[in-house]
């Protein structure tokens, strides 16, 4: 102890070197980080807390602090439109998840077979991803037009009883959206899967060949289990994309026919900006946050829970 004390007096006497203030150390980098800190803390965290907080109030045209407990949530879950929205999201989400993974992986595996024209195929599969959901929705609205679109063409080809009219049929309208959604989004997953496949050691394929394992079996038994992280990433991307589903519905069906293609994001927008019913909007968006949490928390736990990452 005594030695340490002498050391520090020594240090105070030492000329030339002044310990810089902790706060001002790295000052430039702290200043440069202010936008990030503002966005993370005020916009993202602050905004989220604000919305959750006000979802327990009777806010109507303007937010107010007239607390009503869980009333907004009770109203939400007894609303038919919300129930339809949730059901639609379930249908769309289930088929979109399966469809995107299967199509994305199959296309990636086909492109990975050292084929000619890989670049051209990839360009074709991916270009829809560059387009907005509005453009996607409007194109498919036109293609699925019952009088002048696909249905009409097939009938003219001679199959006169052919019926494919999803945008006017409440029972299958979600599949109309699904066709457009898959068209827009599978290219991205294909690209990620392809990158994953390219990351697999060539020697694995050689070993499988030497062992006499067939191509399909190698994919199913060896390659897919090795690509677990890629599948998890894809799952998270598809999942958070599904919850955000909004623009496509607005453009392609406007929620119709009737309310048969409503989705939660659209419910929120209508309540907040169309219905002067802010409380409902806040409650519904909090429910959306909860859904994302249900998808993400297990993933985050699996990814980061076991091991600490620097």
């Amino acid at each position: 102890m005594a030695i340490a004390d002498t050391g520090s007096t020594d240090r105070q006497l030492a000329a030339g070197a002044r310990r810089p203030n902790r706060l001002f150390k790295n000052l430039n980098s702290k200043i440069a980080a202010i936008p990030m800190i503002f966005v993370a803390m005020v916009v993202f965290l602050g905004g989220t807390c604000w919305t959750i907080f006000y979802s327990f109030t009777k806010s109507g045209l303007l937010p107010n602090t007239n607390f009503v407990g869980l009333d907004q949530y009770e109203r939400l879950w007894s609303s038919r439109k919300w129930m339809v929205s949730i059901e639609n999201l379930g249908i769309y989400g289930f088929f979109s998840l399966i469809g995107t993974l299967v199509i994305g992986f199959t296309l990636a595996a086909l492109l990975d077979r050292k084929i000619r024209g890989e670049g051209a195929f990839r360009t074709i599969f991916l270009y829809p991803f560059a387009l907005s959901f509005i453009v996607t929705g409007l194109v498919w609205q036109w293609i699925l037009n019952p009088e002048l679109g696909l249905q009409n063409v097939v009938r003219e080809w001679g199959w006169t009883s052919f019926t494919f009219d999803p945008l006017n049929n409440p029972d299958i309208v979600m599949f109309g959206l699904l066709i457009a959604g898959l068209w827009q989004g599978t290219g991205l997953i294909m690209c990620i899967m392809l990158a994953g496949l390219r990351g697999i050691d060539e020697d694995i394929w050689k070993a499988a060949r030497v062992d006499g394992i067939g191509t399909v079996k190698t994919y199913v038994r060896i390659i897919i289990p090795m690509m677990r992280p890629v599948f998890v990433t894809s799952l998270v991307l598809i999942g958070s994309g599904i919850v955000k589903l909004y623009d496509l519905v607005v453009a392609q069906t406007s929620g119709g026919p009737g309310i048969s293609s409503e989705v939660p994001a659209k419910y929120v927008m209508t309540a907040m900006f169309g219905g002067q019913n802010l409380g409902q909007g806040f409650a519904a968006s909090t429910m959306m946050l909860l859904m994302v949490g249900i998808i993400l928390i297990p993933w985050a736990y699996l990814e980061f829970g076991g091991k600490k990452r620097g």
């Binding site: 150390k25 790295n26 430039n28 980098s29 702290k30 440069a32 980080a33 990030m36 800190i37 966005v39 993370a40 803390m41 916009v43 993202f44 965290l45 602050g46 905004g47 989220t48 604000w50 919305t51 959750i52 006000y54 937010p63 998270v236 958070s240 919850v243 955000k244 994001a265 929120v268 927008m269 907040m272 802010l278 909007g281 806040f282 519904a284 968006s285 909090t286 959306m288 946050l289 994302v292 993400l296």
Partner: peptide, 29 residues
């Protein structure tokens, strides 16, 4: 390159924020 105490925490917050549905933050903004 210039990490400071807490910089990673703010970054994690930012990345978590990227997964929050936009609808949650629309009105506060």
């Amino acid at each position: 390159m210039w990490k400071f105490k807490g910089s990673e925490v703010f970054f994690s917050m930012l990345m978590i924020g990227a997964f929050i549905p936009y609808q949650v933050m629309l009105y506060p903004i």
